[in-house]
Nucleic acid binder design. Structure first.
Lengths: 105, 105
DNA sequence: TTAATCAATCGTATATTTACGATAGACGAT
DNA sequence: ATCGTCTATCGTAAATATACGATTGATTAA
């Protein structure tokens, strides 16, 4: 049991659920907010701003990269992370659509 | 190990991550879409529309209720589920805010 | 070359999620 | 009262997620 049935849903719903999953930990929400507002993008700086170990932060960054919400570019010995505009705007649109209507019952 | 550190983040980020978690399964995204678009709200009808057992659907409905995205009202022997306008609109606002800016690097 | 720094990955322990059969409880109809 | 219907919950197995120390690999500086 516990064989996943996620693949039996539509690609749109699978995609949106996957984006939601990548946002389902406060550390990852925080990382997105850091990248969108602060002048911070270096991996090490992000680690310093979170109450988590380097290994754990790296794992969270990997999850955000997996779904394409962020990209990482190597800059010498460091890595600079950026929000990926394309995925962000698609996510924005899809969430807007999800929350568009409220039912009439 | 694996002691959760979620509580060390801000209440706003914890809240948004929790909403995202409740949307992190395609069945739950689908349930929201069913409730917002179709003339369907009875629990049994939702079960019929999903490729999951009654027990599993009930569990997914419980998760959506937990975060307040839906409410369930008993109607005789059945239960009618509705989107909860208040939570939906707060979620909408918070996601909009999260996706507002794209960084400048 | 050697040393230092930075970030990804490995290994691993624990916690949580997902899925469903079985059961229980609530209600309406007979 | 009994039966059938509907939904929540229990119990449980398997899969995933979370967290971190230790290690690896890559790059810069000396």
């Amino acid at each position: 049991m516990a064989v996943s049935k996620k693949e039996e849903f539509s690609v749109e719903n699978i995609w949106l659920a996957d984006i939601a999953k990548s946002l389902s930990h406060p550390a990852r929400v925080e990382i997105l907010k850091i990248l969108s507002s602060a002048n911070v993008c270096m991996c090490g700086d992000i680690v310093d701003l979170l109450p988590l170990s380097q290994a754990t932060v790296s794992q969270h960054l990997k999850e955000l990269k997996r779904v394409g919400l962020i990209r990482g570019e190597i800059e010498g010995p460091k890595v600079c992370y950026c929000l990926s505009e394309k995925t962000i705007s698609k996510a924005k649109k899809e969430f807007e659509n999800l929350f568009k209507n409220v039912c009439k019952c």
